[in-house]
Design a protein around this nucleic acid. Structure first.
Lengths: 194, 194
DNA sequence: CTTGCAACAGACCAATCGGTTTGTTATTGT
DNA sequence: ACAATAACAAACCGATTGGTCTGTTGCAAG
């Protein structure tokens, strides 16, 4: 990796952290510069403005990480159990920082969806992709599931509940609350089976 | 109502709107001043600083409205149907502005819970109150419900899903998505009965 | 009649914001 | 050897932020 590409990646990584912790609008470019040990010239050489930096963080960091965490769970032989194990292990491995900062995608959705159209469309596209993934995996084991299920509806329900759980955790700073919602969610998911 | 109290209420009302639409941090005091047609001196006569204004909005506007919308649903003879009708009517009556701006409480939770402890504790207290309300109403009709239900867990689950649904609606700007999650949530809630 | 305070008005302030511009350095092709 | 460009450094800029300070006005009590 070239020097230039290295600084670009460094910027992306630091910006991703800052945006995750403080939100996009509250993230200060000068903080990023300080943490990276670079100048403003460097940043504006690699990114045309703050918004484009935000988009780059979203596409090059958040999306891959997001898909990388959901995909394996859904490609299990039994996606129902895959999801439940995924959620449960997330409960157990969750460190304080994650609990407090929430899901980067959901954070951006809450903050930027009605502020900037570019963010909104990117978030929407990601959510639709995740929904499609879940629907796919449910269809794959359709035979084991109850009749009359509306897969897309079920998929959105699962994601909504998950994101709601992270929101609850932010205010309570209590892993147990997250765990409770997840436990109930797993009960719901397993009840999808015949 | 005295003149002074009137301006105070005006400030609170306008601030509540601005915070709902743009979040607390992105809300500009000068915007509030302009919309109210008052000076900075007036605002700082009634509130010591921006944070205290935010707290006042939360306690004097958001909390009463929030409780005022959930309470009636839960005090129905049949809280299960009360909740479902509450959610469904919210789907139908939801105008674009509400869909885009989301729930004020959840917004503040996402934005401020890990930024300011004062906000976090107020939000937490409100969430616990709502949870207690739901638990109460479930206990009231305990006889009609399935055994082995953990009421508090169920209550948090319902609220989490509801808030997750509003988040989904923000990015999609699609009432139907909200409706789908709510439909599935009502299925879940009704399935709590024997 | 005047003194005092509640209820503001509005100029002013330092700090910070995102963004621009100019300058410098190291490398590379010719 | 030289010109060109990539990859920055850093001073600078206008706008805006939350917050302060000094006035000013109207009413009410003494």
């Amino acid at each position: 990796m070239s020097d230039a590409e290295q600084t670009r990646q460094k910027i992306l990584a630091v910006a991703a952290e800052e945006i995750h912790q403080h939100g996009f609008q509250a993230t200060s470019l000068s903080t990023i510069l300080n943490r990276c040990g670079i100048s403003k010239g460097a940043l504006y050489y690699h990114f045309t403005n703050k918004l484009e930096l935000g988009y780059a963080v979203f596409e090059e960091n958040y999306i891959p990480v997001f898909l990388g965490t959901w995909q394996p769970a859904l490609s299990q032989n039994d996606p129902i159990e895959g999801l439940c194990e995924f959620f449960t292990s997330m409960c157990n491995s969750m460190v304080c920082n994650e609990a407090v900062c929430g899901c980067p995608l959901n954070n951006l959705c809450e903050e930027m969806a009605n502020v900037d159209e570019g963010f909104r469309l990117r978030i929407l596209s990601m959510q639709e992709k995740l929904n499609a993934l879940i629907v796919e995996s449910l269809e794959r084991v359709q035979g084991d599931l109850r009749d009359n299920l509306v897969f897309s509806q079920v998929a959105y329900f699962i994601v909504a509940t998950f994101h709601g759980a992270t929101s609850l955790t932010k205010s309570s700073r209590n892993k147990e609350l997250f765990q409770q919602v997840i436990t109930e969610l797993c009960l719901y998911i397993r009840a999808l089976k015949k």
